[in-house]
Amino acid sequence: MEGMTWLGWSFDAFVGAGLLWLAWRALASPDLFKAVVLFVAFGLLLALAWVRLEAPDVALAEAAIGAGLTGALLIAALTRLGISMASGRHRNNNKEEL
């Protein structure tokens, strides 16, 4: 029993750290396509966190809406921006003229 608790706790710590790491990478990654993929992975890991918190309804909603459809919307927006999988770096992101 004691061992199970410890195992559970370290699993939760791993999920929590993973969430923070994925969120940070999704924001900081210079490659926009990669950022979106990381964000979808973040959503899926978050669904796992909902399961751990005994919120299966939220987990289902997160997986389907949060990760799935938001991911689809993001990728559709990327292709419409003219950013593709091959060259994820967005074209010039230099400062705008006023």
């Binding site: 299966p56 309804d57 987990a59 289902l60 909603a61 389907a64 809406i65 799935g68 459809l69 689809a72």
Partner: peptide, 25 residues
């Protein structure tokens, strides 16, 4: 199934709607 099961188990309109939306996508 998600819609039907929502009355007594995890699931419901939003999850079911999202799955339907995924089919549309």
């Amino acid at each position: 199934y998600l819609l039907w099961t929502g009355a007594h188990a995890p699931g419901g309109a939003f999850q079911a709607g999202a799955v339907l939306g995924a089919a549309g996508v």
